[in-house]
Design a protein around this nucleic acid. Structure first.
Lengths: 255, 255
DNA sequence: AAAATAGTGTCTGTAAGACAATATAAC
DNA sequence: GTTATATTGTCTTACAGACACTATTTT
């Protein structure tokens, strides 16, 4: 088992200065893992939290469903890689994207040592790709409540459970857990809605993500008091009841 | 610029089954980055938040101070690697350890592409190593308040700023930000104290980490009501004032 | 007794939960 | 008018902040 010391250089002569050290440095002396990114692209539609998956046409995990992902190129940043695979596999650009966790169990990928930096994206459902060849938007279900944590299940059309590749069920579960936590103290919920939205829509998003009801009055008050909502003066259209005012995410207001 | 496709196999014939695919799989066809771990080992001592650093005796960054870190071995998990470097460089074992963030800017290390999975550890100051050859416990200072975020400064003896290697100032800053956030809703503060501690000590930890005072009455009530503190019945010794009761971290109580 | 801190009790303001009342749209 | 939802107002309760008071130890 070759073990790269943290500062590899048993075979190197001490170098006088950094420049000459770097000229003599050979990163190939030690085996290196592959590094990939995987993105949990989330949206809220039809009363459920959903994730964008694609069907694997190659080994390993052929036929199962996987998060959009791919190996990191040598010259690109990790966030760039995440945005690239999101655009390539799901056609999504300019989305809210945050790093989630890095998964690195030695046996998580049968191809060898593959370390995956997982990200999650929040997307307005109107921008989400329609199901097409190989790409599917699956409902997410978790067997836990609150912020307990654990793997998630992906449900296809007819609520049939989809087999998830690698450790992607764990990754999806962690993304949900993180999102639930964020809703309590930050404004990420907006990212799952169109630019203009009603308070009821925002509350729906919170309830769907959390998997439980929230108090309407308190929710309204908290959101309006947060200073993160900007009333547009316009109202929703084509509803059969009293139309609610539309709000926009306010960059920054008095704290 | 060689670009490994997310599912590398242009040069491979389609394999009938996964086993034969994996036999024919060659991860070496594409360049791979090096993967390292870096650990922000934090403690509270002498009224300050401190971090364990060591002086680099090799290029790059010779003479500057670095977080304990090292390359990940091919057969070890990321957490194992973090615990290993913590034990090797600082002699710390059995500590609270959580993943922080993965840093992967293409130019963050002059040796080439090195992606670092950063972790943070919380340690009781009594277990922290004394300053010795190459190892130093430095005070941490940030130029921001609350949870704004940004790089941290490491101060050596006499409050002299220590030059930090690579992007380790950023990593330390993020660790502080994360810790501050955690204190609001979780019990991590205990991890910076000995097994038995007084409420005042716990409050001191909170105030030092947050960089601002907290309300004593409310703090006491919140902690006692949390059900995470277990009174030991014993009291502190050798104090010149009324001795306070000692508490222990309670695994789990009624929620 | 004096000093210093631990710990308790109480008051007040704020925010959440609950609920009633009013407003506005489609039908 | 009826129905369904938005929006406003009010009451109650829980908790945080503030502050006064009591308790316990060393000097």
């Amino acid at each position: 088992m070759p073990n790269p010391p943290e500062s590899p250089s048993p075979s190197q002569r001490p170098a006088a200065d950094e420049a000459s050290f770097l000229r003599g440095y050979d990163a190939d002396r030690f085996p290196r893992p592959s590094v990939a990114v995987d993105v949990v692209a989330l949206t809220v539609a039809e009363g459920a939290l959903k994730v964008g998956l694609y069907r694997r046409h190659e080994h390993p995990g052929l036929g199962s469903y996987a998060l959009p992902g791919g190996f990191v190129r040598m010259q690109e940043g990790l966030d760039e890689a995440a945005r690239r695979v999101l655009a390539q596999k799901l056609g999504l650009e300019d989305v809210f994207l945050e790093q989630l966790y890095t998964f690195g169990a030695p046996d998580r990928d049968p191809r060898g040592r593959v370390i995956s930096v997982a990200w999650y994206a929040l997307v307005d459902s109107q921008r989400f790709p329609a199901d097409r060849d190989g790409v599917i938007t699956a409902r997410l279900r978790v067997g836990w409540s609150g912020e307990t944590g654990g793997p998630a299940e992906a449900l296809g059309p007819g609520d049939a459970p989809l087999p998830l590749a690698f450790d992607h069920a764990e990754i999806c579960g962690l993304a949900i857990q993180r999102l639930r936590g964020k809703l309590d103290y930050s404004a990420v919920g907006f990212q799952l809605l169109p630019q203009a939205f009603t308070l009821r829509q925002l509350q729906d998003v919170h309830e769907i993500v959390r998997g439980e009801a929230v108090n309407k009055d308190s929710f309204r008050r908290r959101m309006l008091a947060s200073g993160q909502l900007q009333p547009t003066g316009e109202h929703e259209q084509n509803v059969t009841w009293r139309p609610a005012e539309l709000y926009r995410f306010a960059r920054r207001a008095a704290i």
